[in-house]
């Protein structure tokens, strides 16, 4: 047994209801989960399992109805720069250019404290390069395709270098090739070549089981209506992961295991 470090984020019996008391809709029920420092945690589940709600609560944008949610032992009571979010619908500022959006947190938030103008610009330029947006710096979001907007949102999150990266289907709008390239990039940004202590913590929501298995250390499988923890699957594939990983037998076995966990509910949701 390896010694487990204290959890970075701890969810204990978290429950989330929406709406008034008589007709309340329970989105998440008795969810308990430890998120370890430096871990890449993926959350999968059929639609209606409350994935996005969990992420919004972690971000501090939605309060929990009951239960506790703590980070480094302190209750999460609101949004903070140490927990960066990449939203499903990107939430780019339409009046800012690509570079302006990516540099927004550095310019106006604590992420840029102690950095000179030149250092901030250099970081924005590096991140633009990283996500392949070179040449589009001065474009506005409405001039970009869906996939490019998604890359701007990813770049904005990465530029702020938060301790914890909360990502809601970050690669969903991309074509298959770009997606694979950015999965590799994402692992590099996260620090898969580095020891665990130097990695950032990632909570990654996806509907793609393959993506969850390829990226994550552990995959949290939720069931729907209400969202409950079904199983946590350990992904013991060797790192660094690459194309070889995608071809490996254990990769497809793990994907199959997770698919079987959610298959029934996924069918039920689709047929409804």
């Amino acid at each position: 047994m390896t010694l487990q470090p204290a959890p970075k984020i701890k969810l204990a019996h978290v429950r989330k209801e929406f709406g008034g008391t008589p007709a309340a809709i329970v989105a998440v029920e008795s969810l308990s989960l430890d998120i370890r420092p430096g871990e890449f945690l993926a959350i999968v589940g059929p639609s209606g399992c409350g994935k996005t709600t969990v992420l919004n609560m972690l971000a501090g944008l939605e309060p929990v109805t009951s239960g506790t949610m703590t980070m480094d032992g302190k209750a999460i009571s609101g949004p903070g720069a140490e927990r960066g979010v990449m939203f499903q619908d990107y939430a780019l500022f339409p009046w800012k250019t690509v570079a302006g959006n990516i540099g927004f947190g550095l310019e106006h938030g604590p992420a840029g404290h102690g950095l000179s103008r030149a250092e901030r610009d250099a970081r924005v330029a590096r991140v633009i390069d990283l996500v392949g947006l070179k040449g589009s710096e001065t474009k506005y979001p409405h001039q970009l395709s869906g996939g490019m907007r998604q890359r701007v949102a990813l770049a904005r999150l990465v530029a702020n270098e938060p301790e914890i990266l909360l990502m809601d289907e970050p690669l969903a709008a991309l074509d298959a090739q770009t997606r694979i390239i950015l999965q590799d990039e994402l692992l590099r940004i996260w620090g898969q070549d580095k020891p665990t202590s130097e990695r950032r913590t990632v909570v990654y929501i996806t509907h793609s089981i393959d993506e969850a298995v390829f990226l994550a250390d552990r995959v949290v499988v939720l069931s729907s209506h209400p969202g409950r923890l079904k199983r946590i699957v350990d992904v013991d594939l060797a790192r660094p992961r690459n194309d070889e990983t995608r071809k490996s037998r254990s990769f497809s076995e793990l994907s199959q295991t997770i698919w079987e966990l959610i298959r029934e509910e996924a069918y039920r949701a689709t047929m409804q």
């Binding site: 949004p79 939203f87 939430a91 500022f93 927004f104 947190g105 106006h108």
Partner: peptide, 18 residues
């Protein structure tokens, strides 16, 4: 104003005046 834009700015730790 799109609430998500305000949420996005808040998760970047932007203070009220900004």
């Amino acid at each position: 104003v799109d609430r998500r834009l305000i949420a996005a700015a808040k998760t970047m730790g932007v203070p009220r005046g900004t």
